[in-house]
Design a protein around this nucleic acid. Structure first.
Lengths: 127, 127
DNA sequence: GTCACTGTATGGGTTAACTGGTACAGTACG
DNA sequence: CGTACTGTACCAGTTAACCCATACAGTGAC
């Protein structure tokens, strides 16, 4: 499951690990209640420090993807629980802000982005 | 023109400076051939180190927004040369696709993103 | 309690990004 | 030539991110 960790990648190890878990959950490889590998087990398998795995798991816990239980393990959260509407909106806002920042760097206005996005989604916008 | 520099912002100073120039070019405040403030002048105005301004200018030169001439100054590039409309749209589409991918990863639909973006930009959308 | 598992906390080493200070180099004008 | 402007190069200090090593703490079965 975690065969794709690349120490030479510019993206941090902990982020690679977290990303792998995210797609596993999204793809249904991991269901609610399933336990993730223990920090030590995964650390050994990936030849990485336990603290690095912890960082990945904490990252996931922050977003509500998993629940960490001290002494028991780390478990995939109930899907409806891991992301309620407010949290989803917060995540969406975060993504949008990042997009607008990237766009501004290229001299692309928010309106242009909105235009493209509306085409992409097939939703009309009022001018 | 460069009144909006914030030393306490998490985004680097040189990036703030470069971003300001980018939007100025995009908005037509600066046209092709126009000279940017000299590194020393701008550094003094912003109470920043000349090297920081240089970094911003080099960043812009990398993307082709400006041309740096040693001993003469830094000049805005011909607009049609650094990014024509089609290229702008292509860039925008690229950004949007990436956004939608990230959103999907979090289980957020395109419609939700559009909703947030419309709020962010103050543009209404038809349901 | 003891043992074998789980996550946690803290501090250190390495590296890279960021910013600044100062001296160097090209250009234009008189 | 000299002067006054332009960008350039180099090095140092600070900070933050990343990763590791190791000791600490909770849980459950025996």
């Amino acid at each position: 499951m975690f065969e794709s960790i690349d120490p030479r990648s510019p993206t941090p190890l902990y982020e690679q690990i977290a990303a792998r878990v995210r797609v596993a959950v999204a793809a249904g490889e991991l269901s609610a209640g399933n336990a993730l590998p223990s920090v030590r087990t995964l650390a050994r398998d990936l030849r990485v420090n336990p603290a690095t795995v912890v960082q990945a798991y904490r990252d996931l816990a922050m977003d509500g993807f998993v629940e960490i239980r001290h002494g028991q393990g780390t478990f995939v959260q109930d899907v409806p629980r891991f992301m309620r509407d407010e949290e989803r909106t917060a995540q969406a806002e975060k993504l949008v802000r990042k997009l607008l920042q990237d766009a501004a760097r290229l001299g692309i206005s928010a309106e242009e982005i909105l235009q493209v996005l509306s085409v992409e989604t097939g939703v009309d916008i009022r001018e």
